[in-house]
């Protein structure tokens, strides 16, 4: 039923989405905290920027990534020369595209979670002697944890299904950048690929559904907990 090729597509998708989330989530925690808790110059601009991938057509995102991170882009050349990291037409590029497109979905619940923490609790931590970093580690982070999980899960599901930005930026290379969505697309182009496409579609629906359920469950737990605060 499920041949090796399909399994490798699924595993590649999981790897790309996983790497995307592992890099995007810590960044989302830092930016989410900064946006939720601090007032600084350019706050509104940053706030708008993080949501841009949500409203931008994915093809446009992919195009920008290609111009910037592609083999001839400024950042692409820099990363390739100094870090030996090639993004163009590589799975790492697919992870970057997935991470950027998923970023708004990751940061939103995280930012909300930080906003929901009462300032009084953070003040109390400082008054009791915790340095700002320790107050963050011992109070803000654990209290925002359900929001962080919710964001990461939602972002993972989004990254798993990313299509437009990926195909524009890193193309559709079997074994390198052909993720589930791209695989479904490729299979639909071939005359006898319908069956395999259906299998991939079902697996995707299953993965997405479980991600939404986990995320919902987490945020409900979070709401229940913040209600008992005070």
């Amino acid at each position: 039923m499920i041949d090796e090729q399909l399994i490798s597509i699924i595993l590649l998708s999981l790897k790309i989405a996983g790497v995307a989330i592992i890099f995007a989530t810590p960044l989302a925690i830092i930016l989410g905290y900064a946006l939720a808790r601090w007032k600084f110059f350019g706050h509104w601009l940053l706030n708008a920027l993080i949501y841009i991938p949500l409203v931008l057509p994915p093809v446009v995102t992919g195009f920008i990534l290609l111009e910037f991170f592609g083999p001839k882009g400024i950042a692409g050349v820099f990363l390739s020369n100094y870090l030996g990291l090639d993004l163009g037409f590589k799975w790492t590029g697919a992870a970057l595209a997935a991470g950027i497109v998923a970023f708004p979905l990751i940061i939103r619940p995280i930012k909300l979670a930080f906003e929901n923490i009462e300032q009084g609790l953070i003040d109390d931590a400082s008054i009791l002697g915790a340095s700002p970093l320790l107050a963050f580690m011992t109070v803000s982070l654990p209290l925002a944890f359900p929001g962080i999980i919710a964001g990461a899960v939602l972002g993972f599901a989004k990254a798993l299904g990313e299509f437009g930005a990926t195909i524009t930026f890193v193309s559709n290379i079997p074994g390198e950048t052909r993720t589930i969505s791209l695989g479904v697309y490729a299979l639909m182009q071939s005359p006898d690929g319908d069956h395999d496409a259906l299998v991939l579609v079902l697996i995707t629906v299953g993965l997405s559904l479980s991600a939404i359920i986990v995320s919902e469950w987490m945020s409900r737990r979070f709401v229940a907990r913040s209600r008992t605060i005070r």
Binding site: E118, G120, L121, D124, A125, V139, P142, L143, R225, T228, I229, R230
Partner: peptide
């Protein structure tokens, strides 16, 4: 405070 904040976690 009047309604003290206890760390809920």
């Amino acid at each position: 405070l009047q309604e003290a904040n206890i760390f809920p976690h």
